[in-house]
Nucleic acid binder design. Structure first.
Length: 677
DNA sequence: AGGCCTCGAGTTCA
DNA sequence: CTCGAGGCCT
């Protein structure tokens, strides 16, 4: 891929950012997620700084917010409404803190400082003005200088006091948000009324506040957290101007505002980092969205010294949680060969941080998926992580497509062995979507089969991971399964990076792997359509390997769960003379153990479980084993046959499906207790 | 023949 | 986790 001209990209990005800025701030109808928007903004900021500095093209983005719609009247804010700069890592936080310390030192100020950490609520900023204790105005932030008058809407919000307990003048600032439960209900209602649903709680909150009919606002159950006092005039001795952020929060509470209870007062960055970790685990348990922490210097006299940059206050910073959706560029689409010969296109990306890890590749499944996405090489795309683990291309940002973008052409030849590719026919006349390399001797396929054979769920040769198998294969040490068992320490020692101890360990693991259960052995062979489950079925039915090997088609299809396709596949595998020879050579080394009769468990008889998320103490495979031993079964997808969903941390879409179907959810603790394990 | 339920296969990063 | 497709029930 040719490098994209950065000046050209800056121009495109500017236009795009401006477009979405208006969509978001003016129209309340964003088309992209905030994270995506942030990500575009950050890229633009960096590019401008690097490429255009000292040129007349340099017009840094400073304006934030949008133009004002006619239907709401404008209000000019008494004090500018800033927003804090963002940091995304502990290192960046230290840089911010060091700058704070340096400025304080330079100005001859006390450098000892403490911090207030507040949750950064995902809502919309509101500014409330009180005169003599009476609410006289509510406004949105707008561009920071001029916002919209939403006084009548704000009066409909329960958590906002219309009259303060003290007759003072003040301007306070906070966040308006909608609870996740209320959001779900609202969207459900809108669906049944045929209205478009809101994309997220913040849009819903924003939409609800900008209603010309304020009774609608009242019905929408908007909630608030207030966190700042911009101005305060008081004749009352009980109400004095706060000198710190902590006093501010206390005072706000005293004035009957709704104040978030999670805020903490800390003296060190270490404490802040712990709090960050704690909250990043807890964030999904709140009814409001949290996108990070806001860290503020507690002492206002220090804040005054620190002042403002052109863009943001120096005395505070937003420490954001890792973005879950970001943009990046598809540098190339590369075709990978699987163990069965299946060819899978994978997008190679400019590395980006998503949900805490650096992502450089994402599977595209097949051509049809690429078609659906309308993806071309060189495109800018939005990436997210499915179930917080596997990177996924969500969609293409067409506006950023470079002129030299290339279409992905499905390979005519296998990228590894060069033989022709084809699609498989399935059933009568119809053709499957996946493309295959039909050469069984294809080196890539052979390596993948060997990896599968040695894997944990197969022969479980400990220490024989993907890259080691690859290395062995490339050096001609292994080409077929029996080769593993004919390796000597001397063979391995010849390879680079293999010291004596390491070689010895590998030989030992190979030795240990010789004892296997029948189902694991069958699985390891990698027979087409025989996965873990089917291997188990075969093992249970036939008990000994020879009977599986010699089973007739008729016998196979009679087994519950095995149909024509699988029976065919099994038959063909054992009919193949090369396979038979290989097996003969292999079985000399292998000792197939009898499966122990099930430990008379029947507690879970007939119960079907589905697992989602990470369990705190037990591994997924262990749980599966336990459930099976007790007579239950584990399925990979939720259906109405599912009895229980075993819920771990960061559950995926199965959680939502389960909720829809009203399936009982239990966590690890409940599971163990329930079945007295 | 159609629809639901499951399984198999491929995938990512630390 | 997601997708496609095999198996089985209606």
């Amino acid at each position: 891929m040719k490098k994209i001209d950065s000046v050209e990209r800056i121009k495109q990005l500017r236009e795009l950012v401006e477009y979405h800025r208006q969509k978001y701030h003016r129209d309340d109808a964003p088309e992209i997620s905030d994270e995506t928007y942030d990500s575009l903004m950050r890229e633009l900021e960096v590019l401008e700084k690097v490429k255009l500095k000292n040129t007349k093209e340099f017009t840094p983005i400073e304006k934030v917010g949008g133009k004002i719609l006619d239907k709401f009247t404008k209000v000019r804010h008494e004090t500018s409404q800033w927003s804090y700069d963002n940091v995304f890592s502990k290192e960046e936080l230290i840089i911010w803190d060091t700058r704070v310390e340096n400025i304080l030192k330079k100005e001859g100020f006390e450098i000892k400082r403490s911090y207030i950490c507040e949750l950064k609520i995902d809502g919309l900023k509101i500014i409330l003005t009180y005169k003599n204790g009476e609410l006289i105005q509510g406004a949105t932030r707008g561009d920071g200088e001029v916002g919209e008058d939403i006084t009548e809407n704000v009066r409909m919000i329960e958590s906002i006091p219309k009259k303060l307990p003290f007759p003072i003048d003040c301007i306070v600032v906070g966040e308006a948000w909608m609870a996740k439960d209320d959001f779900d209900l609202l969207n459900k209602e809108r669906t049944s009324n045929g209205e478009p649903v809101f994309a997220n709680t913040r849009n819903a909150a924003a939409g609800s506040l900008r209603q010309l009919d304020t009774s609608v606002t009242g019905k929408r159950k908007i909630k608030t957290f207030i966190y700042a006092i911009d101005e305060l005039v008081s004749n009352n001795k009980k109400i004095v101007k706060p000198k710190t952020q902590k006093e501010t929060l206390d005072l706000l509470e005293k004035l009957s505002f709704s104040v978030n209870k999670e805020s903490r007062h800390f003296n060190s960055l270490e404490e802040i980092n712990d709090f960050y970790d704690l909250q990043s685990n807890k964030k999904n348990s709140y009814q409001y969205g949290v996108d990070g922490l806001v860290i503020k210097i507690n002492d206002f006299s220090q804040c005054d010294v620190l002042g403002y940059t052109a863009k943001a206050p120096r005395f505070g910073i937003a420490f954001k949680f890792p973005a879950e959706e970001v943009t990046t560029i598809v540098e190339d689409i590369v075709v990978q060969v699987g163990r069965t010969g299946a060819l899978t296109p994978v997008a190679h990306l400019v590395p980006v941080r998503v949900a805490g890890s650096l992502v450089s590749r994402a599977t595209l499944h097949n051509e049809e998926e690429i078609e659906r996405l309308g993806l071309m090489i060189g495109d800018t795309v939005i990436i997210k992580k499915a179930g917080d683990v596997i990177p996924e291309v969500v969609r293409v940002i067409l506006e950023l497509r470079p002129k030299n973008s290339k279409k992905f052409l499905p390979p005519i030849h296998c990228p590894i062995c060069g033989s022709l590719t084809e699609k498989k026919s399935i059933g009568k006349g119809s053709i499957g979507v996946a493309l295959y390399c039909v050469n069984k001797k294809c080196f890539a396929q052979e390596v993948e089969r060997l990896i599968h054979f040695a894997s944990k769920k197969g022969m479980n040769i400990v220490g024989m991971g993907d890259s080691i198998v690859e290395q062995f294969a490339e050096n001609g040490l292994v080409g077929s399964f029996p080769d593993f068992y004919e390796l000597t320490e001397g063979d391995i020692l010849g390879l680079p990076l293999f010291a004596e101890l390491k070689s010895k360990n590998i030989i030992e693991s190979i030795e240990k792997s010789k004892k296997v259960t029948l189902h694991r052995f069958l699985y390891a062979l990698g027979i087409l359509h025989v996965g873990e489950e089917t291997a188990y079925l075969l093992a249970e039915h036939f008990k000994v390997f020879d009977k599986v090997k010699n089973a007739s088609y008729e016998e196979l299809v009679l087994i519950d769960g095995i149909g024509e396709v699988v029976a065919d596949s099994v038959q063909n595998y054992f009919k193949d003379s090369e396979n038979r020879e290989m097996l003969e050579r292999l079985l000399v080394h292998i000792k197939i153990e009898k499966i122990q009769p099930k430990k008379g468990g029947s507690v879970l008889k007939g119960k079907t479980f589905v697992l989602t998320g990470t369990l705190p103490n037990i591994s997924r495979d262990e749980v599966k084993k336990i459930i099976k031993e007790l007579g239950g079964s584990v399925s990979s997808s939720v259906s109405k046959n599912t009895d229980y969903i075993l819920l771990g941390e960061n559950p995926g879409t199965k959680y939502d499906e389960g909720q829809k179907l009203g399936i009982k959810m239990i966590d690890e603790e409940e599971f163990l207790k329930l079945f007295k394990l």
